[in-house]
């Protein structure tokens, strides 16, 4: 088991230091009133290369959100380190952008003003903020919706605004916490294609957390399968499926996609089976 959790970063991605490194990250929570502790993450080790789109998939309770809080710097690991470009993460910072499942837009701000929020923290002059926000709303396909309030936008559009907001201040890494889980199936597929397009256009490093196997396979260059309680890396699978993100190609019906999907499913449900079929690098 332990052997499966470690995987060198070299295969398929550029050499050099990883952009984001989880080095034996451990997180424990005190259970209230009992004096015992709950291990949410146990020696989680993972490297994410610059420009890579990695998807993390796991059952509920695998510590996905805990992991996200740690990367964000909103909480600190009990053990191990998280390194961003070789420097340990010590608190929230604009080198990481986060997209939440529930959008987290400020309802009293227009789309434009929401995107400007992170730029205000960066103390950019007003005209500059305007320009950047406008550009990013255009990037996510929302040109013309700058003055709409969140309640005037659909779920998919809100999430586009949230993505624009997180990209606008140009973070090194974009962290996405089940961003499309609250959307209907069609909107979700559209936004998955949009995300791939944006990723290719910006070359950002993206860590995408999901509980959807299909979504993980469709988006990820690599799919990281996590175990439930305590969360650790069970398997890392390379995905090589051409044509993803091209709206006129039904990649999801491709036998290769279906096979890949099944391998991730296997890894999630039967750790042993995944190992025996050789999907997991030693």
């Amino acid at each position: 088991m332990t052997a499966l959790t470690e995987r060198p970063v070299d295969a398929g991605v550029a050499a050099g230091p990883p952009r984001l490194r989880f080095d034996a990250v451990r997180k424990e929570f005190a259970v209230r009133g009992t004096g015992t502790t709950l291990v949410a993450l146990q020696e989680l080790t993972l490297d994410v290369a610059a420009g890579e789109l990695v998807t993390l998939v796991g059952p509920s309770g695998c510590g996905k959100s805990t992991l996200l809080d740690l990367v964000t710097g909103l909480s600190e690991p009990t053990g191990g380190r998280i390194l961003l470009d070789g420097h340990p993460v010590t608190g929230p910072g604009l080198d990481r952008g986060i997209v939440f499942q529930q959008y987290a837009l400020l309802p009293w701000r227009t789309a434009q003003a929401n995107v400007e929020l992170g730029l205000e923290a960066r103390r950019l002059p007003r005209a500059e903020r305007r320009r950047i926000a406008r550009e990013h709303l255009e990037l996510v396909g929302l040109a013309g919706f700058e003055d709409r309030y969140p309640h005037e936008l659909s779920g998919g559009m809100k999430q586009r605004v949230a993505i624009a907001r997180s990209l606008a201040f140009d973070p090194e890494v974009l962290l996405m916490d089940e961003p499309f889980a609250a959307l209907d199936a069609q909107t979700r597929e559209t936004l998955q294609d949009e995300l791939l397009r944006i990723w290719r256009a910006t070359g950002k490093t993206i860590v995408f957390i999901t509980h959807g196997i299909e979504e993980a396979v469709y988006l990820g260059q690599r799919v990281v399968v996590l175990t439930p309680r305590p969360g650790r890396v069970r398997a890392v699978l390379d995905v090589d499926l051409p044509g993803r993100g091209e709206p006129d190609r039904d990649v999801r019906s491709d036998p290769a996609f279906v096979a890949m999907r099944h391998r991730v499913w296997d890894a999630l449900h039967h750790a042993g089976a995944a190992a025996s079929t050789g999907e997991v690098a030693p």
Partner: peptide, 10 residues
């Protein structure tokens, strides 16, 4: 969530 999100925005 708004507080978390704003803090993550620096």
């Amino acid at each position: 969530l708004l507080v978390r999100s704003a803090r993550s925005l620096g």
